[in-house]
Simulated scan of single mutants.
Amino acid sequence: MRRLATLARVARLMDTALRIPGTRIRFGADSIMGLLPGIGDAAGALVGLAVLNEARKLGLPGNKQMQMLGNLATDAVFGSVPVLGDLFDVYFKSHRRNIQIILDHFELTHEDLNGR
């Protein structure tokens, strides 16, 4: 359970750690790193691949791993488009999607990870 909680914290940092004041729009390190052409999107993809590797170690089935890989690929391809890709990163949130795939597989919620 501790590994899943750590993965969820990484996803939060990457996708929703910050909020634009006065709005419900949240973004994270992935959106900020994406401002660095090429390097930022690659760094975000590497973090996503690390999460995918942990999912593999936890025994997630291949079809769900492929779904996670598809989310990462979508984020990498569309996120690499200058300016529009950065906006895409704010809304797509591939890391959170992938954590949700893992949680759904193990029939857990974010609250389960936080001990509530």
Rank of each mutant, 00 (worst) to 15 (best):
D112I: 04
V90A: 04
L69R: 01
N71E: 09
D15T: 13
F88T: 10
A76G: 07
N114E: 14
I20M: 12
L108M: 13
L103C: 10
N71T: 11
D30A: 15
G38W: 06
N63Y: 12
A76F: 15
N53C: 14
G44K: 04
L60F: 04
I32M: 08
R116V: 08
L69T: 07
G44I: 04
L52C: 08
G48F: 09
K64L: 15
F88D: 03
M66H: 01
I32Q: 03
G62E: 11
Y91V: 14
M14K: 08
A43P: 03
M68P: 00
V10Y: 09
G70K: 14
L84N: 01
A11C: 12
L108Y: 04
V81I: 15
M66E: 06
D86Y: 03
R96N: 09
L46A: 15
H110C: 01
V47Q: 03
T23M: 03
I39F: 11
G115M: 01
P61K: 02
L103M: 15
A42I: 14
H110I: 06
H105A: 10
K93M: 09
L84D: 03
A73P: 06
D104W: 02
L58F: 07
L87E: 02
H105R: 01
V10H: 10
G62V: 06
H105F: 12
F27I: 13
L36H: 02
G59H: 05
T109W: 08
A11Q: 13
G70V: 15
D112Y: 06
N63H: 13
L18N: 04
A29N: 07
R2D: 12
Q65K: 07
D112N: 14
D86I: 03
N71P: 00
A29M: 15
L18Q: 10
D41W: 02
T6Y: 14
G115K: 09
D30V: 05
A5R: 13
Q100I: 02
I101R: 02
F27D: 00
